[in-house]
Amino acid sequence: MLPPFLHILTFFLAFQTANSWPDGLCAILEYSRAEYVTVEERYYGPYIKLSQYCFGDGFDFYVTPRFPTPDDVRDGTETSTIFLAVLDPHKNPVLFAEVKHESWARAAASRHRADRHMRTRFFALLYDCPMPRLWGLSFLGTSVRIYVGDKVTHKITPPPPPVSPPYDLYVPPPDLLGEEWKTDVLSEQGFRKMKDVVNDIISHTQHGH
């Protein structure tokens, strides 16, 4: 029988040894982002496929949808956001992703909302993460911003933008977070960043968290 860490590595070998995304995966995402349909019809299947490619087809992790929270309903985002989580066999989160339409990147107000949504997810999930860090991916179309939460300090990186209360009346400046979703996940840089995230998760799995 293989040692546990070798057992884990065999399922991640394709992603770990690759230098770019497979052509087939790129084709799926590129075709999907060109469709004029709802965000769920456009991206749900492709991002499930991307997550499965990153984490392999073994049983150390699995990808699952998460359903709208009361906050989502109040905020009106339950029909405009796909929420996925990567869990370990004990149903503990090691990574989560929010996927929204690419139009969210165009205005400061929507970028600010996307950032707040990610931080709200961390508050809900960080306590249950079995590793020192919980990773979060915010996709606006195929543009990605990567977050990480520290299990001990509860600090989330990158830090939130400065906001002047009252929050419900806050009007963000036009350039707020304007450079934060500039990485296309399908690009070489996007591939490298995703590999860094997955490598961090795997390394903690190999060393017993």
Rank of each mutant, 00 (worst) to 15 (best):
E102S: 15
F5V: 10
S80N: 04
G45C: 14
M118D: 00
Q16G: 07
I156K: 10
L29I: 11
H112M: 00
F139G: 09
S80K: 06
E102W: 13
K49L: 14
A18F: 07
G45I: 12
E41P: 00
P159I: 00
G56M: 08
K91H: 14
V171D: 05
H154G: 03
D60F: 09
L29G: 05
D88H: 03
G45L: 15
N199Q: 15
P162T: 00
H7A: 15
V148G: 03
Y127R: 10
L137S: 12
L125Q: 08
Y167F: 12
P130V: 11
A14K: 14
P65N: 06
V185N: 01
A97I: 14
Y43G: 02
F67C: 00
P166V: 04
D57E: 08
A14Y: 10
T81F: 06
Q16P: 03
V94K: 01
Y43K: 07
K195M: 13
M194P: 00
T69I: 02
I82H: 07
F15M: 15
F122I: 05
S80V: 07
G178P: 10
T205W: 05
L169P: 00
Y170G: 04
D71I: 11
L95K: 04
D175Q: 15
R74Y: 02
G141W: 05
S103E: 11
P166W: 08
T142G: 02
C54Q: 12
A18P: 01
D115H: 06
V198Q: 07
Y127W: 06
Q16E: 12
Q52F: 03
Y167H: 10
P159H: 01
F5E: 13
T157D: 08
K155M: 12
E30L: 10
I146V: 12
G58S: 06
K155G: 06
R74K: 09
D196M: 07
L13H: 13
F67I: 05
E98Y: 15
H101S: 14
L13W: 14
D175G: 10
R42E: 03
P158C: 01
Q52P: 01
R192M: 02
P68D: 09
F83A: 12
D75K: 09
K151R: 13
S110V: 04
D72I: 09
S138L: 11
M194G: 02
C26A: 05
I202K: 08
A114I: 01
T17E: 13
P172M: 01
W21A: 08
A18Y: 05
D184C: 04
I156S: 08
P70M: 10
R106S: 10
E40I: 00
R42I: 02
E102A: 15
G149A: 07
L95I: 03
T64E: 14
D71E: 14
H207R: 06
S20A: 11
L177S: 01
T120Q: 13
D200N: 06
V86L: 00
S103C: 10
E179S: 13
T79C: 02
A18N: 04
